[in-house]
Protein backbone atom coordinates (compact mmCIF):
# COMPACT_ATOMS: atom_id res chain seq x y z
CA UNK A 1 0.00 0.00 0.00
CA UNK A 2 3.02 2.17 0.55
CA UNK A 3 4.45 1.31 -2.81
CA UNK A 4 2.85 4.16 -4.68
CA UNK A 5 4.07 6.67 -2.19
CA UNK A 6 7.62 5.32 -2.31
CA UNK A 7 7.50 5.42 -6.07
CA UNK A 8 6.43 9.02 -6.05
CA UNK A 9 8.97 9.96 -3.42
CA UNK A 10 11.74 8.55 -5.54
CA UNK A 11 10.57 10.22 -8.68
CA UNK A 12 10.67 13.56 -6.85
CA UNK A 13 14.10 12.77 -5.46
CA UNK A 14 15.50 12.07 -8.89
CA UNK A 15 13.73 15.03 -10.36
CA UNK A 16 15.36 17.16 -7.66
CA UNK A 17 18.78 15.72 -8.39
CA UNK A 18 18.32 16.37 -12.09
CA UNK A 19 17.08 19.89 -11.54
CA UNK A 20 19.95 20.67 -9.18
CA UNK A 21 22.58 20.26 -11.88
CA UNK A 22 20.52 22.39 -14.25
CA UNK A 23 20.16 25.04 -11.56
CA UNK A 24 23.88 25.04 -10.84
CA UNK A 25 24.64 25.44 -14.53
CA UNK A 26 22.12 28.23 -14.81
CA UNK A 27 23.47 29.88 -11.66
CA UNK A 28 27.01 29.89 -12.97
CA UNK A 29 25.92 31.34 -16.27
CA UNK A 30 23.85 34.05 -14.57
CA UNK A 31 26.71 34.95 -12.25
CA UNK A 32 29.06 35.35 -15.20
CA UNK A 33 26.47 37.26 -17.17
CA UNK A 34 25.30 39.66 -14.45
CA UNK A 35 28.83 40.58 -13.48
CA UNK A 36 30.23 40.46 -16.97
CA UNK A 37 27.55 42.64 -18.51
CA UNK A 38 28.62 45.57 -16.36
CA UNK A 39 31.83 45.71 -18.36
CA UNK A 40 29.84 47.02 -21.24
CA UNK A 41 28.71 50.09 -19.37
CA UNK A 42 32.13 51.45 -20.27
CA UNK A 43 33.42 49.23 -23.03
CA UNK A 44 31.97 48.71 -26.47
CA UNK A 45 31.15 44.96 -26.81
CA UNK A 46 32.65 44.83 -30.29
CA UNK A 47 35.82 46.46 -29.09
CA UNK A 48 35.88 43.94 -26.26
CA UNK A 49 35.52 40.91 -28.52
CA UNK A 50 37.65 42.00 -31.43
CA UNK A 51 40.09 44.49 -29.95
CA UNK A 52 43.52 42.95 -29.81
CA UNK A 53 44.99 44.93 -26.96
CA UNK A 54 44.39 43.82 -23.41
CA UNK A 55 45.85 46.36 -21.03
CA UNK A 56 43.44 47.02 -18.15
CA UNK A 57 46.05 48.67 -15.95
CA UNK A 58 47.44 51.09 -18.51
CA UNK A 59 48.58 54.40 -17.11
CA UNK A 60 46.53 56.55 -19.45
CA UNK A 61 43.74 54.72 -21.22
CA UNK A 62 43.01 51.09 -20.33
CA UNK A 63 42.09 48.75 -23.18
CA UNK A 64 39.95 45.66 -22.91
CA UNK A 65 40.26 43.75 -26.16
CA UNK A 66 40.24 39.98 -25.79
CA UNK A 67 40.80 39.29 -29.52
CA UNK A 68 44.32 37.96 -29.17
CA UNK A 69 43.42 35.80 -26.16
CA UNK A 70 40.39 34.47 -27.99
CA UNK A 71 42.56 33.57 -30.97
CA UNK A 72 45.11 32.02 -28.61
CA UNK A 73 42.51 29.87 -26.89
CA UNK A 74 41.07 28.70 -30.21
CA UNK A 75 44.56 28.06 -31.53
CA UNK A 76 45.75 25.80 -28.72
CA UNK A 77 42.40 24.02 -28.64
CA UNK A 78 42.46 23.40 -32.38
CA UNK A 79 46.09 22.31 -32.20
CA UNK A 80 45.33 19.93 -29.37
CA UNK A 81 42.39 18.46 -31.26
CA UNK A 82 44.42 18.00 -34.44
CA UNK A 83 46.86 15.91 -32.43
CA UNK A 84 44.49 14.18 -30.01
CA UNK A 85 41.51 13.24 -32.19
CA UNK A 86 43.26 10.97 -34.70
CA UNK A 87 45.45 9.51 -31.98
CA UNK A 88 42.50 9.05 -29.66
CA UNK A 89 40.21 7.41 -32.20
CA UNK A 90 43.07 5.26 -33.42
CA UNK A 91 43.85 4.07 -29.90
CA UNK A 92 40.17 3.52 -29.17
CA UNK A 93 39.77 1.45 -32.32
CA UNK A 94 42.89 -0.52 -31.46
CA UNK A 95 41.76 -1.17 -27.91
CA UNK A 96 38.24 -2.22 -28.77
CA UNK A 97 38.72 -4.03 -32.07
CA UNK A 98 42.27 -5.25 -32.42
CA UNK A 99 44.00 -5.60 -29.08
CA UNK A 100 43.77 -8.98 -27.35
CA UNK A 101 41.67 -8.86 -24.18
CA UNK A 102 44.75 -8.98 -21.93
CA UNK A 103 46.43 -6.04 -23.61
CA UNK A 104 43.25 -4.00 -23.33
CA UNK A 105 42.87 -4.82 -19.66
CA UNK A 106 46.31 -3.43 -19.01
CA UNK A 107 46.34 -0.49 -21.40
CA UNK A 108 42.97 1.06 -20.71
CA UNK A 109 43.43 1.65 -16.98
CA UNK A 110 46.88 3.07 -17.65
CA UNK A 111 45.45 5.48 -20.18
CA UNK A 112 42.74 6.51 -17.78
CA UNK A 113 45.32 7.14 -15.09
CA UNK A 114 46.84 9.70 -17.41
CA UNK A 115 43.70 11.75 -16.78
CA UNK A 116 44.52 11.82 -13.09
CA UNK A 117 47.90 13.55 -13.44
CA UNK A 118 47.57 17.06 -11.96
CA UNK A 119 47.75 19.70 -14.67
CA UNK A 120 50.50 21.48 -12.78
CA UNK A 121 52.70 18.41 -13.18
CA UNK A 122 52.00 18.31 -16.90
CA UNK A 123 52.89 22.00 -17.06
CA UNK A 124 56.09 21.22 -15.26
CA UNK A 125 56.99 18.67 -17.92
CA UNK A 126 56.20 21.27 -20.54
CA UNK A 127 58.67 23.71 -19.07
CA UNK A 128 61.47 21.31 -18.30
CA UNK A 129 61.24 18.80 -21.16
CA UNK A 130 58.98 19.81 -24.01
CA UNK A 131 59.94 23.49 -24.06
CA UNK A 132 63.68 22.92 -24.57
CA UNK A 133 62.92 20.12 -27.02
CA UNK A 134 60.73 22.37 -29.15
CA UNK A 135 63.27 25.19 -28.96
CA UNK A 136 66.14 23.04 -30.15
CA UNK A 137 64.13 21.18 -32.80
CA UNK A 138 62.84 24.31 -34.49
CA UNK A 139 65.78 26.56 -33.65
CA UNK A 140 63.81 28.95 -31.46
CA UNK A 141 65.19 30.75 -28.46
CA UNK A 142 62.10 29.93 -26.45
CA UNK A 143 60.03 26.77 -26.41
CA UNK A 144 57.17 28.17 -24.36
CA UNK A 145 54.61 28.73 -27.09
CA UNK A 146 51.27 27.68 -28.58
CA UNK A 147 52.74 24.45 -29.94
CA UNK A 148 53.92 23.42 -26.50
CA UNK A 149 50.46 24.13 -25.08
CA UNK A 150 48.74 22.25 -27.89
CA UNK A 151 50.83 19.13 -27.39
CA UNK A 152 50.27 19.07 -23.64
CA UNK A 153 46.55 19.75 -23.98
CA UNK A 154 46.40 16.89 -26.47
CA UNK A 155 48.01 14.62 -23.88
CA UNK A 156 45.48 15.77 -21.32
CA UNK A 157 42.47 15.37 -23.61
CA UNK A 158 43.61 11.98 -24.87
CA UNK A 159 42.40 9.81 -21.97
CA UNK A 160 38.90 11.25 -22.19
CA UNK A 161 38.75 10.84 -25.94
CA UNK A 162 40.10 7.28 -25.91
CA UNK A 163 37.91 6.16 -23.05
CA UNK A 164 34.63 7.56 -24.36
CA UNK A 165 35.36 6.61 -27.98
CA UNK A 166 36.34 3.09 -26.98
CA UNK A 167 33.06 2.62 -25.14
CA UNK A 168 31.19 3.90 -28.19
CA UNK A 169 33.04 1.62 -30.59
CA UNK A 170 32.58 -1.38 -28.34
CA UNK A 171 28.86 -0.68 -28.10
CA UNK A 172 28.44 -1.31 -31.83
CA UNK A 173 26.44 -4.54 -32.08
CA UNK A 174 28.45 -7.55 -33.11
CA UNK A 175 25.77 -8.33 -35.68
CA UNK A 176 26.85 -5.35 -37.79
CA UNK A 177 30.41 -6.59 -37.88
CA UNK A 178 29.36 -10.15 -38.63
CA UNK A 179 27.24 -8.93 -41.53
CA UNK A 180 30.25 -7.09 -42.88
CA UNK A 181 32.61 -10.04 -42.54
CA UNK A 182 30.03 -12.32 -44.13
CA UNK A 183 30.04 -10.06 -47.19
CA UNK A 184 33.75 -10.55 -47.59
CA UNK A 185 35.01 -7.48 -45.77
CA UNK A 186 38.30 -7.69 -43.90
CA UNK A 187 38.94 -6.15 -40.50
CA UNK A 188 40.07 -2.78 -41.80
CA UNK A 189 37.08 -2.31 -44.10
CA UNK A 190 34.71 -3.44 -41.38
CA UNK A 191 36.25 -0.97 -38.96
CA UNK A 192 36.24 2.02 -41.30
CA UNK A 193 33.00 1.37 -43.17
CA UNK A 194 30.79 -0.14 -40.49
CA UNK A 195 32.06 0.03 -36.94
CA UNK A 196 33.35 3.61 -36.86
CA UNK A 197 30.38 5.12 -38.74
CA UNK A 198 27.99 3.22 -36.47
CA UNK A 199 29.68 4.65 -33.40
CA UNK A 200 29.98 8.15 -34.86
CA UNK A 201 27.68 9.87 -32.38
CA UNK A 202 29.71 8.46 -29.50
CA UNK A 203 32.95 9.49 -31.15
CA UNK A 204 31.61 13.03 -31.53
CA UNK A 205 30.77 13.00 -27.83
CA UNK A 206 34.33 11.87 -27.09
CA UNK A 207 35.73 14.72 -29.18
CA UNK A 208 33.53 17.29 -27.47
CA UNK A 209 34.48 16.12 -24.00
CA UNK A 210 38.14 16.21 -24.98
CA UNK A 211 37.70 19.64 -26.47
CA UNK A 212 35.95 20.87 -23.35
CA UNK A 213 38.93 19.74 -21.37
CA UNK A 214 41.26 21.61 -23.73
CA UNK A 215 39.28 24.86 -23.83
CA UNK A 216 38.86 25.04 -20.10
CA UNK A 217 42.31 23.90 -19.08
CA UNK A 218 44.11 26.68 -17.26
CA UNK A 219 47.16 25.74 -15.26
CA UNK A 220 49.07 23.93 -17.98
CA UNK A 221 48.61 26.55 -20.64
CA UNK A 222 49.37 29.26 -18.15
CA UNK A 223 52.70 27.61 -17.42
CA UNK A 224 53.88 26.60 -20.87
CA UNK A 225 52.58 29.04 -23.43
CA UNK A 226 54.76 31.99 -22.49
CA UNK A 227 52.15 34.51 -21.33
CA UNK A 228 52.37 36.86 -24.26
CA UNK A 229 49.38 39.10 -24.87
CA UNK A 230 50.11 40.06 -28.46
CA UNK A 231 48.23 38.60 -31.39
CA UNK A 232 49.85 35.26 -32.34
CA UNK A 233 51.01 34.68 -35.90
CA UNK A 234 51.97 31.04 -35.66
CA UNK A 235 52.20 28.10 -33.31
CA UNK A 236 55.76 29.15 -32.50
CA UNK A 237 54.54 32.37 -30.88
CA UNK A 238 54.06 32.77 -27.17
CA UNK A 239 50.44 33.33 -26.28
CA UNK A 240 48.08 33.78 -23.39
CA UNK A 241 44.67 32.11 -23.29
CA UNK A 242 41.39 33.39 -21.86
CA UNK A 243 41.59 30.95 -18.96
CA UNK A 244 45.14 31.94 -18.06
CA UNK A 245 44.13 35.59 -18.04
CA UNK A 246 41.33 35.00 -15.58
CA UNK A 247 43.58 32.91 -13.35
CA UNK A 248 46.41 35.42 -13.38
CA UNK A 249 44.38 38.58 -12.94
CA UNK A 250 41.32 37.75 -10.86
CA UNK A 251 43.34 37.42 -7.66
CA UNK A 252 44.87 40.86 -7.99
CA UNK A 253 42.08 42.94 -9.40
CA UNK A 254 40.27 45.60 -7.37
CA UNK A 255 36.69 44.61 -6.59
CA UNK A 256 33.97 46.34 -8.56
CA UNK A 257 36.19 47.92 -11.20
CA UNK A 258 35.70 47.57 -14.93
CA UNK A 259 38.71 45.29 -14.93
CA UNK A 260 37.00 43.07 -12.36
CA UNK A 261 33.80 42.84 -14.37
CA UNK A 262 35.64 42.30 -17.62
CA UNK A 263 37.15 39.09 -16.23
CA UNK A 264 33.63 37.79 -15.69
CA UNK A 265 32.85 38.72 -19.25
CA UNK A 266 35.87 36.68 -20.33
CA UNK A 267 34.42 33.78 -18.36
CA UNK A 268 31.07 34.24 -20.08
CA UNK A 269 32.80 34.11 -23.48
CA UNK A 270 34.50 30.85 -22.51
CA UNK A 271 31.21 29.45 -21.32
CA UNK A 272 29.52 30.45 -24.57
CA UNK A 273 32.23 28.77 -26.65
CA UNK A 274 31.81 25.50 -24.74
CA UNK A 275 28.06 25.75 -25.07
CA UNK A 276 28.27 26.34 -28.82
CA UNK A 277 30.65 23.42 -29.27
CA UNK A 278 28.24 21.19 -27.35
CA UNK A 279 25.21 22.30 -29.31
CA UNK A 280 26.92 21.83 -32.66
CA UNK A 281 28.20 18.43 -31.59
CA UNK A 282 24.79 17.35 -30.38
CA UNK A 283 23.31 18.38 -33.70
CA UNK A 284 25.98 16.59 -35.73
CA UNK A 285 25.65 13.47 -33.59
CA UNK A 286 21.88 13.40 -33.99
CA UNK A 287 22.33 13.28 -37.76
CA UNK A 288 24.27 10.07 -37.38
CA UNK A 289 22.27 8.34 -34.72
CA UNK A 290 20.44 5.29 -35.92
Amino acid sequence: MNRNRTDRLFSYLFLGAGMLSVLILLGIFLMLLINGIRTFAEINPLEFLFGSTWNPSAYEKASYGIGSMLVSTLMVTLGAMIIAVPLGIGSAAYLSEIAPARVREILKPILEMLAGIPSVVIGFLGIVLLGPAIASTFGLNNGLNALNGSILLAVMALPTIVSVAEDAIRAVPNSFKEASYALGANRWITLTRVTLPASFSGIIAAMVLGMGRAIGETMTVLMVTGNNLSMPNSYFDSIRTLTATIAIELGEVAYGTTHYFSLFAVGAVLFTISLLVNIVAEWVASKFRY
Partner: peptide, 26 residues
Protein backbone atom coordinates in the same frame (compact mmCIF):
# COMPACT_ATOMS: atom_id res chain seq x y z
CA UNK B 1 29.22 -18.18 -49.61
CA UNK B 2 26.86 -15.49 -48.34
CA UNK B 3 25.03 -15.46 -45.06
CA UNK B 4 21.72 -14.29 -43.66
CA UNK B 5 21.48 -14.10 -39.89
CA UNK B 6 18.80 -14.95 -37.38
CA UNK B 7 18.15 -11.40 -36.31
CA UNK B 8 17.89 -9.02 -39.27
CA UNK B 9 21.06 -6.94 -39.15
CA UNK B 10 21.03 -4.22 -41.79
CA UNK B 11 23.79 -1.66 -41.40
CA UNK B 12 22.80 1.74 -40.02
CA UNK B 13 23.02 3.06 -43.57
CA UNK B 14 20.53 3.75 -46.32
CA UNK B 15 18.74 0.91 -48.07
CA UNK B 16 20.78 1.50 -51.23
CA UNK B 17 24.05 1.58 -49.32
CA UNK B 18 23.17 -1.63 -47.54
CA UNK B 19 22.70 -3.46 -50.81
CA UNK B 20 25.74 -1.86 -52.41
CA UNK B 21 28.07 -2.56 -49.49
CA UNK B 22 29.42 -5.90 -50.65
CA UNK B 23 30.11 -4.60 -54.14
CA UNK B 24 31.65 -1.36 -52.98
CA UNK B 25 34.14 -3.04 -50.71
CA UNK B 26 35.08 -5.41 -53.50
Amino acid sequence: IGMVFQKPNPFPKSIAENVAYGLKIA
